[in-house]
Structures are given as structure tokens and as C-alpha cells.
Amino acid sequence: MAALSTTGRPGHPDRRRGWLHLFWLATVYGIPAILIVLPLLTFLMFGFWSVEEGRILRDFSFDNYFAFAGNESYTRVFTGTLFLALRVMIINVLLGFAVAYFLSRLEGRLKYALVLGLIVPLLMSYIIKIYAIRGILGTSGLLNKLLIFLGILSQPSDLFLFNLTAVLITLSLALLPFTILPIFIALEKIPANYLEASADLGATPWQTFRRVTLPMALPGTVVGGMFCFVLAVGDFLAPELVGGTRGFTYGRLVFSQFGMAFNWPFGAALSVILLIVSLGVIVAAGRLGSPKWLRQ
């Protein structure tokens, strides 16, 4: 049971490096390697193959990537989806920061209840959320009724269902708890005496917010934004359920290659592009989220 020591003490080499230890190492490295890395690599390979008469042709080529880059309708869906995810992210970071900041200023029971009220939708089934939101978007839905009641619209509009606006609203709402919570946690971790020190040194509340709170909440905000962007850019359930034919997104394009179009290699190539975008955002968020001055 040498493996179970919690501290690898230098100068005290583990005494029993037996079978158990080997088994442990094999599990710890083997399972992620086989079930996470290997599938991703297989996937990468698939993107270089092609399909002919329903059979997969294992010849290495960049044809799938050229086919993507050369077809304007594909690239337009791609850039459109990137912008969509970007807009969802911006909306959610702004809204999320406002809500998280407000919650972090509260105290006691009310705060606990409201935070719990955010965790409930976080753990709620994603398709149920989409389904419920779809229910309020139609011409006779709650949103139209509200806008007419407020006098913003004079008659019901069909602008909110079966197009990209519907996808935007649905994704923003469904992903909002994912954005709020990391920001809230970051705000909660700011020591109260930092804020007091800032005030004691003569800073106005705005200066304290601008110079202390905002920089210290940055990592959580970046993480919240990242969650939101990555989940939005790859999603196909929301566009599938509320997008209609006009709300076509990249996720749906990928999905269709594995369904109707039945072109796995092309689908794999499209996903590799999505993978690169997502990894780029995750790594960038990791960098931005832990700036040098915070790491020390």
C-alpha cells in the first residue's frame, strides 16, 4: 500500500514497488490513454480518410479539409456559429457578472437560497431546459405576450422561433448558470480585508471595484466565459429543437454527417476543426485565467 501515502517524501523511496503499484500506474495512465487519447487520435485519423459507395477508404489525404475550406456554405455556417457562440458568451458574461456580483454582496439565508436557485438549473437536464424555453418562444408564447403587454410589440412576432435568434436566446438562457457560478465563486474568494484595506486607503467604491474586485474576479470570469463559448459552439441540440431550417449551425452540420449524410470521415474532419477551436479557447482561458501576478 505504498501507493497510498499522500506525500511522496524525498529521500524515502517507496519500499514496496510491487504488483499493486504497477497495477495502479497502469490504471492511472492506461485508462485515460486508451479511452480518452486513443479515441481522439482515431478520430484525427478518420478525418484524413474518405468514403466511397458507403465504404470507408483508408487513404491519407487532406481532401476533407479542402472540401470544407472550398465550400462557401460550410465556411459560412462555421463563421456564423463562431459569432453566435461569441455573442452568447458576451451576453452571458455581462449578465452573469451582474448577477454574481449582486449575489456575492448578499448575506445569510437569502444568499444561500439564491445560490441554490442557480445550482438547480445547472444540474437540470439540458434538453428539458431547451424544451421549456421553446415553449415560451412561439407566436403565442410567453415572450410575445410579455412584449405586447409591455407595449414593445403591437402584435405577436414570429422572430423568436425557428431561426438563429431563437438559438441565441435558448443557448444564453440554458448556459447562463454555467457562467454565473464560476464568477460567483471567484468573487467569493476575494478576502474581505482586501476590500477594507482598499477603502481605508481612500479608494472610492468604484475604484475598489475597478482595481481590486475586477482583476481578482478575472480568472473565474474567464472560466465562465470559456464554458459558455465551448458549450455553445459545439451544441447541436438547441439548434435542432428551436433552430428550424434557418437556424443551422456547425454542430448540426457535424451531426448530419453521422446521420443522414453518412460521411464519417468528413464529419470527423469537421469535428477536428471544432476540436482545434475548442482546445484553443480552453488553453487561452487557462492562460488568461491565471495571470502571472495571481500565480505567485
Binding site: P39, L40, F43, V230, G234, V254, F255, S271, L275, L279
Partner: peptide, 10 residues
């Protein structure tokens, strides 16, 4: 962290 579509498809 990755979009579920990638995990699922891979």
C-alpha cells in the same frame, strides 16, 4: 471541457 459532440463522436 470539450463540446460533448466531440467526446461522443470520438
Amino acid at each position: 471541457l470539450l463540446p460533448p459532440i466531440i467526446t461522443g463522436l470520438s
